[in-house]
């Protein structure tokens, strides 16, 4: 066990836990989008879970650090909040904000984040960059909405590490990156239709099952 001080709150956690998990389990909320409980190597792709650790020059994504004894952590500093707001705006710059018509409305990761950071759901200084294709229906069991997707990678993670299916992957790159797959109704196993883990972990309803069970 190690003891650390987070925002003047003393907590004891098991050695080797990652800092984000330690905070979340002790009721200290840190914004996060791509992290799933139990992840061994979080991708740190959402860039939201920044904290300041004393002794470090810059804020660090908390999901990438392991707890140390006598660590001094601050989760609510101006530098941290600035980075988090920027990260959210960057995510929103490739996100089609159309909450009224979105099934994730009121249970959306981005809405939660904006509420917590007290910012609007706007990309502000960043240009909006949307893909032409509104929906990709080529998967036999799933519909994919590229303009909702924030590429957090949770679906890819659950498909690979929890379901051992590896049907989903990141395809292409840069601004064109999408969640993709390869195959058709003949080659994709029917277990994929029953699983739906990917759609369940999606924070923004970018992956939806074609039919309800």
């Amino acid at each position: 066990m190690v003891t650390l001080l987070i925002d003047d709150k003393k907590i004891d956690v098991k050695e080797g836990t990652n800092l984000l998990r330690a905070c979340l389990e002790n009721d200290i909320y840190i914004p996060n989008l791509c992290y799933i409980k139990g992840m061994q190597n979080p991708p740190a792709s959402c860039r939201l879970c920044f904290v300041e650790i004393e002794g470090e020059d810059h804020p660090i994504a908390s999901c990438t650090v392991r707890v140390r004894d006598d660590m001094l952590v601050h989760t609510d500093t101006p530098r941290v909040r600035r980075l988090q707001k920027t990260a959210l705006q960057l995510l929103l710059s490739v996100h089609d904000v159309d909450c009224k018509n979105c099934p994730a409305n009121r249970k959306c990761g981005l809405q939660d984040m904006a509420r917590f950071l007290k910012t609007a759901l706007k990309s502000n200084r960043f240009d909006l960059f949307l893909k032409k294709n509104q929906v990709d229906q080529s998967h036999p069991f799933l519909d994919y909405y590229p303009n909702r997707c924030v590429l957090c990678g949770r679906c890819v993670y659950v498909c690979r590490d929890q379901q051992k299916l590896t049907e989903l992957t990141f395809a292409q790159r840069g601004f064109n990156t999408v969640i993709g797959f390869f195959g058709n109704s003949q080659t994709i196993p029917p277990s994929c239709d029953r699983c739906r883990a990917c759609a369940e972990v999606c924070p923004v309803a970018a992956l939806l099952p074609k039919r309800e069970i």
Binding site: T169, F181, F182
Partner: peptide, 25 residues
């Protein structure tokens, strides 16, 4: 071709989607 993607995936015992992800990158 798509057939090649399946062939490589079978050979390396990884899923065709993984091959596809790398190849499109």
């Amino acid at each position: 071709p798509g057939e090649a993607i399946h062939m490589v995936a079978d050979h390396l015992s990884i899923s065709p989607s993984e091959v596809y992800g790398v190849a499109t990158f």
